[in-house]
Nucleic acid binder design. Structure first.
Length: 834
RNA sequence: GCCGGCGUGGUGGAAUGGCAGACGCGCCGGACUCAAAAUCCGGUGGGCGCAAGCCCGUGUGGGUUCAACUCCCACCGCCGGCACCA
C-alpha cells in the first residue's frame, strides 16, 4: 500500500477487483455508446436477446461472449460497431409464476431483468445499454400493435376459423413452426387440434420471395437455409377438375405428377373434404369415415359410393376417403396412381384396387416395380394416348399445356408453409388492437389510440380462459366508428411478433425512442446528409444465436423485414447478412438442464475466477458453431493462462513500457530476440486469420498461448532485448483484449497505455519479419518420413533436392535403388519415389 | 424413408491434398517444501527395441494420387432436421 506513486501493479492477479474497476471505468466513459458516424464503416453485431427467465445460463454466456469478442475485434478494426441488448420479455413463464406464486407477471419479469442485467454487466459485455429494448413495455409493444394495423391495411392480417394447434398445458394456440414432433416447442406436451377463430399473418404472401431470397443468405449456415427452404416447401403442379359421375359437381385435385394422369385408378379425398358432407348420405359410411384411423402408419379408407371421371381418359374411377390425405394442403383431394406413388400403391393393395403402369424406367421395361412397390421416378410414358413415348419431364409440360388449353384445370404452385397464427389465449403478451362491434363488425383500434394497454389489475386463477376476459374495464369499450358499446379482442399476440423486429428498435435508439411513424417520414425525406439511422445500421452484419430458431424466429424476422421494407421503413430485403449458430453447452454428454442436475452456474464461476477466465474458457474449448463440452479443469486451465500472462508482466514490470523499438533495428538484435519478434508477427497473423476464418477463436487463443510460452522462455539480457520483450508483450495484450478485456486493459495501462484498448488499432504484421529464415525440410521416401534437414528459406527446388539427397539417412535408404520420381513442395518437403 | 452434420490420443480439440495429434486438460517424473497445495522444468498415440531405429495408427472397406484426417465410392455408428405436402 502506498509504495507506488501511481496505482501500481499488484503481484497477484485479482480479477474481482480489476474487473469491477474497468467495468465502472468503461461505463463512466460511455465507451460503448454509439451513434451514426458516416465517416466510418458500420458493423451491426447482434446476439439473440434472452427471455428474462430469472438467471443467465451458460448458453447465454457463450452466446454473448462470442458476440462481444466480435464486437470488440471489429471496433479495433476501425468499424463503428452497434452492439445492443434487450429483453424478450413477454411470455408464458411470467404468467405461470403468477398462477403459482401470486406474483404479478410484470413484477416477476422486471425483477428478473434487473438481476440478469447485473449478471451481463459483470461479464464486461460491450453493450450500448442506452438502446435497451424491453418488449413488455407499452412503448415497445405499441409498435407491435402498429405493425398489426399496417398488416391489416395491407391485407396481411386476417381472421379465420380453422383447426389450429392447441397446447392443453399452455392453454393456447401454437403456430405450425412452434409444433415439434406433434409436441409444444415450449413445454413438450402433445398438441391437439381445435377449431377456433384466430388472427393470422399472411406469411404465405411472401413465400415466393422468402424462398428466392434464401439464395442471398450466403453468410448463413447452409443447414439453416436448407431447413427454411424445406419448410417453405414449394412445389409446382396442376389442379385438375374431375366430374363426379351422375351429378353436375366436380372435384378439384392437385398433382405435381400430371405425367401419371393416365394411370389414375381411383381418387382419394380428405376426411374433412366438403364433398364428403355433400355426397355421402349413408349413415354407416359416414360413421366409418369418422372412425378412420389417425395413425399415420396405417393407411385406411372408405369408398364413398361415387365415381369421378378422369378428364383425360374418360375413365370412371371410384372416389375414396383416405386417412392420409391432408385437407390443408393443395385441394384436399388427390388422384391416386398406385403404380407410381407408394402410398397409393399400399392403399390399392389393401383394398384390391387396380394398378395401371403408365411410366416405364426406360423403353420396354414395362411393369417395372408394379409388384413390390410403386415406381416413383421419372421415366418414359406408356399407355398415355398422344403423350406416350415422352419423357416425364417433357410430358408434364405438354399435359399441363393441354389441360390449360382444354380448360380442365391450371398450373399452380403450392407451398407447405402455412399462414402464421398469432392469436394467443393468454394474458402476458401484446393486446391485439381490435374491437368487436355488433353494428360495425371487426374494427381496428385507430392508430392515434395506441397503445392498447395491457391491464395490470388481473386475477390469475390458472383455470380455463384467458384472464383478460375477466377484466371488464378492458373488455368493455366503445366502437371507434359508431361509438356504441363494443368489446375488445382479448387474445394477445404470439411473442415471436415481438422478436421479429427488435433489431429495428435498437437502431432507433431503444424502447423510449422508437417512433416508427417519424422513422418512415425520416426515411422518405432522407437526403445524403440526414440519412436515417435505420438506413445506416441495417442490415445486421453478424447475428449470433441458437439453431433452434432456424424456422421460427429467423423465418418470422425475414418475413417482417420484407413487410417493413414494403411499408417504407428500410430498404434491405434481408435482416441478417451473416448468421452464426453456436453449439450447445454440454456437460457429461448432455445438454445442461436442471432435471439432469448438470448445470454450471455462471455467477459462481465469475465469482471464483472472474469473467475473463470464463470468457477465455468458452472461446478456447471449441469453435463457436460446435457443441462445447464443459470442463471444470478446462476453466482452471484458462485461469492459469491469465495468471501466467499477469505474472509475466509483473516480473518485467519496469522493463515493459511503451517500446520505442523500430523495425529497422532488427539487424542489431541477437538471434533469440529476432526469433521472439518473428513469433510475435506470426501470432498476429495467426490470431487475425483465425478470427477472420469463421471466428475460430479456439485456434486464436492457442496461438496466443504459444506466444506467451515463448515470451516466458525468452531470457533478455540487453536493453534491446527488453525492448523486444516489451513490444512482444504489449502486442500479446492487445491480441488478448477481445477475449479477456479486463485483465488486458489493466496490463495495458500498467505498461504505459494511455488510451483504452478499444481505441487501439488491431495490430498488423510484417510478412518479411514473420517469415522463417530457416525451415525444416521433410524428406520422404515413398511417402514415409526418413529425414529432416534445416534449409534456408527461399532455396530453389534444385538446391532443395540436393540437400535432401545429401542427408546420410536418406542415402542409406536409397542405397542401390532406382529413382522413379522426385516431388518437391516449395521449401517444405521432398518426396523421393523409388 | 429423405436431407444435412459428425466420427482423430486417456480427454476438449489442431492440421490451404504435403511432418497427424498445435494449444489446453489429465497423467507420469523432477525442482521448491518438514509436508501438502500452488508454481516452475521435463515427458506423454500404440507396439517392438538397450539403443539407433522400425512397424502400426484419423469409424470400416475400397479407389484416385508421388503423397489422403482432407478428394471419390460403398458401408457402420452417433447427432440434428423433415416425414403421408400428392
Amino acid at each position: 500500500m502506498g509504495r507506488c506513486r501511481r496505482q501500481c501493479l499488484e503481484e497477484k492477479y485479482n480479477p474481482k477487483e480489476i474487473e469491477k474497476k474497468w467495468q465502472e471505468h468503461w461505463e463512466k466513459e460511455g465507451l460503448f455508446s454509439v451513434r451514426e458516424d458516416h465517416s466510418l464503416p458500420k458493423f451491426y453485431c447482434l446476439e439473440m436477446f434472452p427471455y428474462p427467465s430469472g438467471r443467465i445460463h451458460m448458453g447465454h454466456v457463450r452466446n454473448y461472449v462470442i458476440g462481444d469478442v466480435i464486437a470488440r475485434y471489429k471496433k479495433m478494426r476501425g468499424f463503428n460497431v452497434l452492439h445492443p441488448m434487450g429483453w424478450d420479455a413477454f411470455g408464458l413463464p411470467a404468467e405461470n409464476a403468477a398462477i403459482k406464486h401470486g406474483v404479478l407477471p410484470a413484477k416477476w419479469t422486471f425483477e428478473n431483468i434487473d438481476y440478469m442485467k447485473g449478471q451481463l454487466k459483470k461479464m464486461g459485455l460491450s453493450y450500448d445499454w442506452a438502446r435497451e429494448v424491453t418488449t413488455c413495455k407499452p412503448e415497445y409493444y405499441r409498435w407491435n400493435q402498429w405493425f398489426f394495423l399496417k398488416m391489416l391495411e395491407r391485407g396481411l392480417a386476417y381472421k379465420k376459423a380453422s383447426f389450429v394447434n392447441w397446447c392443453p398445458s399452455c392453454e393456447t394456440v401454437l403456430a405450425n413452426e412452434q409444433v415439434i414432433d406433434e409436441k409444444c416447442w415450449r413445454c413438450d406436451n402433445t398438441v391437439i387440434q381445435k377449431e377456433l377463430e384466430q388472427w393470422f399473418f399472411k406469411i404465405t404472401g411472401y413465400a415466393e420471395e422468402l424462398l428466392r431470397d434464401a439464395d442471398k443468405l450466403g453468410g448463413w449456415p447452409e443447414k439453416v437455409v436448407t431447413m427454411q427452404r424445406n419448410w417453405i416447401g414449394r412445389s409446382e403442379g396442376v389442379e385438375v377438375d374431375f366430374k363426379i359421375v351422375g351429378t353436375d359437381r366436380t372435384v378439384r385435385i392437385f398433382t405435381t405428377r400430371q405425367d401419371t394422369l393416365y394411370g389414375a385408378t381411383f381418387m382419394s379425398v380428405a376426411k374433412m373434404h366438403p364433398l364428403v358432407e355433400g355426397l355421402v348420405k349413408d349413415e354407416n359410411t359416414r360413421r366409418e369415415i369418422a372412425s378412420l384411423s389417425e395413425d399415420p402408419e396405417q393407411k385406411e379408407g372408405v369408398f364413398t359410393g361415387h365415381y369421378a371421371e378422369n378428364p383425360l381418359t374418360g375413365d370412371h374411377i371410384p372416389i375414396w376417403v383416405a386417412n392420409f390425405v391432408l385437407m390443408e394442403y393443395g385441394t384436399g383431394a388427390v388422384m391416386a396412381v398406385p403404380a407410381h406413388d407408394q402410398r397409393d400403391f399400399e392403399f390399392a393393395k389393401k383394398y384390391d384396387l387396380p394398378v395401371k403402369v403408365v411410366i416405364e424406367k426406360w423403353q420396354g421395361a414395362r411393369g417395372e416395380g408394379s409388384r413390390e412397390g410403386a415406381f416413383e421416378e421419372d421415366g418414359i410414358l406408356v399407355d398415355s394416348s398422344q403423350f406416350s413415348g415422352l419423357p416425364s419431364r417433357e410430358a408434364r409440360e405438354k399435359i399441363a399445356d393441354y389441360i390449360e388449353q382444354k380448360e380442365l384445370g391450371k398450373r399452380v404452385v403450392n407451398y407447405k408453409l402455412r399462414d402464421w397464427g398469432i392469436s394467443r389465449q393468454r394474458y402476458w403478451g401484446t393486446p391485439i388492437p381490435v374491437v368487436y362491434c355488433d353494428s360495425c363488425g371487426i374494427m381496428p383500434v385507430p392508430e392515434n389510440e395506441l397503445p392498447v394497454i395491457l391491464p395490470q389489475d388481473v386475477v390469475f386463477t390458472g383455470k380455463g380462459v384467458s384472464p383478460l376476459l375477466e377484466v371488464k374495464s378492458f373488455v368493455d369499450t366503445k366502437c371507434p366508428r359508431c361509438g356504441k358499446d363494443a368489446r375488445r379482442e382479448t387474445d394477445t399476440m404470439d411473442t415471436f411478433v415481438d422478436s421479429s423486429w427488435y433489431f429495428i428498435a435498437y437502431c432507433l435508439g431503444g424502447n423510449a425512442k422508437v417512433d416508427l411513424n417519424s422513422a418512415i417520414s425520416g426515411q422518405r425525406s432522407a437526403g445524403a446528409i440526414h440519412e436515417s439511422p435505420l438506413r445506416y445500421w441495417m442490415p445486421v452484419d453478424q447475428y449470433i444465436g441458437g439453431i433452434e430458431h432456424a424456422v421460427l424466429h429467423l423465418l418470422y424476422s425475414r418475413f417482417f423485414t420484407k413487410v417493413i421494407r414494403d411499408i417504407g421503413l428500410i430498404e434491405t430485403d434481408e435482416p441478417f447478412t451473416s448468421l452464426l449458430t453456436q453449439g450447445m453447452v454440454i456437460k457429461d454428454g448432455a445438454k445442461m438442464s436442471k432435471s439432469k442436475g448438470n448445470v454450471v452456474d455462471p455467477d459462481f464461476l465469475i465469482n471464483k475466477y472472474g469473467t475473463d477466465t470464463v470468457r477465455v474458457f468458452c472461446m478456447f474449448a471449441a469453435p463457436p458453431e460446435r457443441d462445447l463440452e464443459w470442463s471444470d479443469q478446462g476453466v482452471e486451465g484458462a485461469y492459469r493462462f491469465l495468471n501466467r500472462v499477469w505474472g509475466l508482466v509483473y516480473n518485467n514490470k519496469f522493463k515493459i513500457q511503451d517500446s520505442k523499438f523500430k523495425i529497422e533495428e532488427i539487424f542489431s538484435l541477437q538471434p533469440s530476440a529476432i526469433s521472439l519478434l518473428r513469433k510475435t508477427h506470426q501470432t498476429i497473423k495467426k490470431v487475425t486469420g483465425s478470427i477472420e476464418k469463421d471466428y475460430h477463436f479456439n485456434t486464436a487463443i492457442a496461438a496466443l498461448m504459444e506466444l506467451i510460452n515463448e515470451i516466458s522462455s525468452f531470457n533478455p539480457s540487453g536493453e534491446k532485448d527488453f525492448e523486444v520483450l516489451g513490444l512482444s508483450m504489449r502486442q500479446a495484450i492487445v491480441l488478448l483484449s477481445p477475449f479477456a478485456p479486463h485483465v488486458a486493459e489493466e496490463l495495458w495501462r500498467q505498461t504505459g497505455g494511455k488510451e483504452g484498448l478499444l481505441k487501439q488499432p488491431w495490430p498488423s504484421w510484417d510478412e518479411e519479419i514473420a517469415k522463417e529464415e530457416e525451415t525444416e525440410l521433410v524428406v520422404q521416401i515413398n511417402g514415409k518420413v526418413r529425414g529432416r534437414v534445416m534449409i534456408p528459406a527461399g532455396l530453389d527446388d534444385e538446391a532443395v533436392k540436393e540437400k535432401a539427397f545429401s542427408e546420410p539417412k536418406v542415402r542409406e535408404h536409397l542405397d542401390g535403388k532406382t529413382l522413379k520420381k522426385v516431388v518437391v513442395v516449395q521449401g517444405r518437403l521432398v518426396n523421393i519415389v523409388i
